[in-house]
């Protein structure tokens, strides 16, 4: 099992409630697991706790109750032992690249940090090629790039160490539709070529169906349904059904 989430609970302090100590339960016992090599989508309405799950898996926050294992180990332990093996692409690409560094340094950060001294330049060029960016971009700064280009840079950095687990946290939600399609194609290519486990978090069911083998529906802090994307219409859960049938299709 690549990733295992067991009965995870997480709540946050509610703001603006004066002296009352109310807590907002975001996750109410979320459990799921992802096998190595799988590409799984996680959907749910905004505020349903998708991002919380991603932060917990990434080890940026701790669960109140329950546990998360990557390859049988606790997240923080696993990260220490497997440097660069879990990667993430965030929704907000503007703060994903340090504005002080050139694109080549942004992409090469992990390569350099984890001890590679030679051949970084060549590797960065190879990565740029892989994500479909011109080599000339290497000497520019993040603020000189468009949103789509910057997200490609983030993807290049994310796959630089050939990670085993890749989390895409609403990675296409802030992009224009035509750019979204290009980035989705890139994800598709990466998935085909690099054989990594991918968790694709999104609110766009059509994009999830395009990329993933399996989709999980998150509602009221719980996974209410897991289903293969090829059998989408077999969903049993009421909420998942509503989400599916509310999608407005585009027909030509």
């Amino acid at each position: 099992m690549m990733l295992e989430v067991r009965e995870v609970y997480r709540s946050y302090k509610k703001t603006g409630n004066g002296f009352r100590r109310e807590r907002l339960n975001v996750l109410n016992g979320v459990s799921f697991s992802i096998r190595a090599g799988e590409c799984v989508g996680l959907v749910g309405e905004s505020g349903s706790g998708k991002s919380t799950i991603s932060r917990l898996i990434l080890g940026l926050e701790k669960a109140d109750k329950g546990s998360i294992f990557i390859e049988g180990k606790r997240v923080s332990e696993w990260i220490k032992e497997n440097k660069g093996q879990m990667s993430v692409v965030f929704q907000d690409y503007t703060s994903s690249a340090n504005p002080r560094y050139k694109i080549s340094d942004v992409i090469g950060e992990l390569l350099k940090a984890f001890g590679e001294n030679e051949g970084i330049h060549g590797k960065v060029e190879h990565l740029l090629e892989k994500v479909g960016l011109p080599l000339s971009i290497a000497n520019r700064y993040p603020h000189e790039l468009s949103g789509g280009q910057l997200q490609r840079v983030c993807i290049a950095r994310a796959i630089s160490m050939h990670p085993r687990l890749l989390i895409l946290d609403e990675a296409i939600s802030s992009l224009d539709v035509s750019i979204q399609a290009q980035i989705m194609d890139l994800f598709y290519k990466i998935k085909k070529e690099m054989n990594m486990t991918i968790l694709f978090i999104a609110h766009d069911l059509q994009a999830v169906a395009h990329l993933c083998d399996k989709v999980m529906f998150l509602h009221n802090g719980q996974i209410v349904e897991q289903i293969a994307t090829s059998n989408l219409t077999d969903v049993q859960n009421e909420y998942a059904r509503r989400l599916l049938y509310s999608v407005i299709p585009f027909n030509v």
Partner: peptide
């Protein structure tokens, strides 16, 4: 996000 990314990567 760039600091988060670095943390996640170990």
């Amino acid at each position: 996000n760039y600091v988060r990314f670095a943390k996640v990567s170990g």
